[in-house]
Design a binder for these strands. Structure first.
Lengths: 166, 166
DNA sequence: AAGTTACCTACTGATTCGGTGGGATTTGGA
DNA sequence: TCCAAATCCCACCGAATCAGTAGGTAACTT
């Protein structure tokens, strides 16, 4: 029941983009450095997310990557699902033709699957962006924690879904 | 977010044992044939489950494997957890020292983890055994005889306690 | 004693994971 | 116009995990 590094990296990268939503394109290397991720690998992950419609990109100088939608509108399920492929815990859930339940533990796996989807649906990029901004405000550069690239004023008005605010 | 074949095989095997709980040792080859699982592989899985205290075994002729507890008292979480190792979706949940949340998405992964555990806790081997018996009654193996002794319903509810922590 | 069964360890082919590397293409700016 | 910056695309690669096999040893029944 692991979430691979693809999923984790992707979530972190998009959370970073979400925290800067509205500021225009950010290039991949910047994201990679800020989140301490391998740049070329992240490039591939973002390409997948672009093909999945979650980000838009522009090439050439001053190009970069931007979220395709408002952070509030992007659930973690969308992100993880694109990077991880199917989230089905077992193959016997595959036949959605609705007739035969081939495996004995079918109700179990189905419950597990829906529980996972439901949880992943209940978080959005806006939730993570909020935490990320809070952390950046708390640990400005120089302190040992998270050296951040540039912390210019993040004035973007964030309407946040307050489901998971703590 | 896959459950490996180890986990699935183990659940099926224990469900089979659960459906025959109280009938004494059943040898591994029988279980393997009934559930269409590779015998030698299943042997390894059951060894793990034995070391984890979920089954007891006896060697030699007429030996075999038996559930160590009432099927109602064994949750699927225990089974999967033993075979799959840690069920933590990501490593940043590892430090249970309760103070530092190192990763930004920590609340997300924690919610995911608990949602998984909760679902896996809510099913027991007795649940699966019931379905298994129902299936066998409906489609008895045509040529080979799978001895289908009727079991009386196992005694009244023992609330399963959450012994298990990660 | 003989046969049956679980136990244990080692090995293995296939697949996935987690990246790297190198180029081609597009774009903005001097 | 030309260069630098950036994404895009694809091939490759070592390491780890997965899903078993194989074979011998120990214990138990008859």
């Amino acid at each position: 029941m692991r979430v691979s590094s693809r999923g984790q990296y992707g979530v972190r990268a998009l959370a970073y983009l979400a925290a800067r939503y509205g500021e225009g394109p950010i290039n991949v290397r910047t994201v990679a450095q800020a989140e301490r991720l391998p740049a070329k690998y992240l490039e591939q992950l973002l390409a997948k997310l672009r093909r999945g419609g979650l980000v838009r990109s522009s090439r050439g100088a001053r190009g970069g990557v931007v979220l395709a939608q408002d952070p509030k509108a992007i659930s973690i399920r969308q992100v993880v699902s694109l990077l991880e492929g199917s989230l089905l815990p077992v193959d016997c859930l595959k036949d959605t033709n609705g007739h035969e339940e081939n495996c004995v533990a079918h109700p179990l796996w189905r419950a597990l699957h829906e529980s996972v989807l439901s949880t992943l649906d209940s978080f959005t990029l806006a939730d993570l962006a909020e935490r990320l901004r809070a952390r950046e405000a708390k640990a400005p550069r120089g302190s040992g924690m998270i050296p951040e690239a540039e912390l210019e004023t993040v004035g973007a008005g964030s309407g946040r879904s307050d489901v998971h605010s703590e």
